[in-house]
Design a protein around this nucleic acid. Structure first.
Lengths: 206, 206, 206, 206
DNA sequence: TATGAATGAGATTTCATTCAT
DNA sequence: CATGAATGAAATCTCATTCAT
């Protein structure tokens, strides 16, 4: 009984891992369910027993990868005390994870785009989860006075967008190096530039 | 003879306009050449006379839209004198143009993603054109001392990425309002936050 | 031991009842073994233990329903003495049974058609059983002079065919009413019209 | 221009003829579009250019065959003057046509059955066309007093059903011979048996 | 140049059946 | 006897592209 359950779970797991590999390699449309099956050593029927459609498989995969990344980010933030450090740590962790695993980045940042609004909604939903976490801590930082009173929601989205573009570019061209160049710039723009102490000199008109 | 030329050009133009409409509506993969033909009032053969493939048609469309947007941005910057104002003006113009024309935004920011590396290269190339313009002026601003000495290349990409995410999100959810909320935040993050006068109070690194 | 037997029989019975319900609802091809299993609260394996294939299950079901209907018809005829009344009674009973139970009618008259010659043979075989009963009594009636000397075999088939069409039509359109309209017509055509004395005497038995 | 039209029509015609052959041979479900294509010397795409689905192709075929048969029946009736002869002639023509062309009979009488209610509706609709023609003339015959005042609608359906069963049985078993045995019986049952003179005099209304 | 009928490789999905537990 | 995860052959339909007219 439990044996069958394990067997079932193992197959599901193999399929998801195969899907991660194949979707990252070819993108959504150019991925054939046949190939996923081959890599997972599962039959076509087996695939469809576990996931009702190619689309559903892709969604399940995105959810899983996003959840994993989010977990890592969360864990990294626990180690920090003040809000600004938390956000800084989140940024660093996400950037490192994505640059360490191209597959993760490709699927999460790239492959779901431009495939129609159903996919886009899924992507927006996932990005929003990240943005929410960032925003929450930005809010704390604003409240305790360590950051200027900025529009944290928009800032969080801008953050996610900037990070996305830099990683995607790096995936395709190899530049700029995420850790050495992108991380410092993002830190400067999104944290240093809006730190409260700057306020003593205050309110740069416009 | 010139009449024939005009005729030919007119057909090509109708096809491009039809493509803009249809690609924006359905995305690349869900757009049928049949529908482009119908909207353009051109036959299949006509389509393939003017553009050798669906991919080529899409590229031609992206190029055209990007060039148009870039032209508008350039023109806006001519009216400004100091580098920071130029960049600010570029940002404002791009944001306004994209939020005014959803179709433009959808094709430029959305539909070319995730369709395989050939598409991705095209998108990166186009985004790079924008980033280059931004970067050039940021460089000027750094040189003349109005901005802190930041990594302008990375900053420019971050900029483009942030703008992209905010517009895409607005297209799909209607929020946040590009002009009222996104523009001020982007200005704060990318210009105010890295203004040179901040330096008097110095480098609060970490 | 007998308990196990009962258990086994009970499962088989549940499967047949489920099959009756599901086949009647969706027709042969659109019926999924999965659904039969669900309705019967039996596993796939259970189904295939009791019936070696979907086809075999369907045949078993047809046989069972046909036998039941034939039994009712037989019983009704026992109550009658002269051959013509027997036939009349058979017609009436069959018509009533079929119009009372749409499921029965659907499976017996409808779902086995057009599924290839294997199915067709089964259907012909079943219809033949009914036709034989009718024919036998028509033969008696001819012999004892109460009916004109007609071709009883062909008449019996025509009878079954007419009845089939009228019931199927009623199943789908709700008209004409089997008892009020179809029964009298069939009686007139197949009995009154070929009565021997009809011209001179008249036998209004029953 | 007309050349292309002819070419197009010719292809459509080839497909319909191929469909007639293949559907008659294998039945609806066991017919592969691939085989229809092969027989028609048309590609898969060509098939789907002319008929949007397998179902639509089958319907188109049924309509065409039914129309053809109905036309033959109509033409045969024109040659007759009194209503009873017309009906007799219709019966004879239909029976002969169906027994001459097994394919026609198989598709019209057999292959559309039991494939779900969409198909069944189509079949009922086609049978109704025949029944209507029969009924119309029965009505005339009743009105002018040559037939007893029977329920002509039900009679017409019974007629169609009887004919159907006899032909289907003949297709599968080779018996009874439609012309030699079935035709006389049907004539007796549906016409002789309900002739008005059989009674005394009566009913010369109108 | 334009037309649109025709192509055909290939994609996703279905589902009766099997068999290790 | 029962279970249900897994199989895999096969079926319908899609659509960018071509080419005779």
């Amino acid at each position: 009984m439990s044996g069958q359950q394990n067997q079932k779970e193992a197959t599901r797991e193999r399929i998801l891992q195969a899907a991660e590999e194949v979707f990252a390699q070819h993108g959504y449309h150019d991925t054939l369910m046949d190939e996923v099956g081959q890599v997972a050593r599962a039959s076509k029927g087996g695939l469809y027993f576990h996931f009702p459609s190619k689309e559903a498989l892709f969604y399940a995969l995105m959810d899983r990868l996003a959840a994993k990344l989010l977990r890592e980010v969360d864990e990294a933030m626990v180690g920090e005390t003040d809000p600004v450090s938390k956000v800084q740590s989140a940024l660093e962790t996400a950037l490192k994870a994505l640059s360490r695993q191209r597959q993760l980045a490709k699927i999460l940042l790239l492959q779901g785009y431009g495939l129609g609004s159903a996919f886009e909604k899924k992507r927006l939903e996932i990005y929003e989860r990240f943005a929410s976490v960032i925003r929450e801590h930005l809010d704390h930082a604003v409240k305790d006075g360590s950051l200027l009173p900025i529009d944290t929601e928009v800032t969080a989205y801008a953050w996610v967008g900037a990070l996305n573009e830099l990683i995607v570019r790096w995936i395709h061209t190899g530049k700029p190096d995420p850790i050495k160049r992108s991380l410092p710039v993002l830190t400067t723009l999104f944290l240093q530039g809006v730190k409260a102490e700057a306020k003593t000199r205050t309110k740069r008109t416009k």
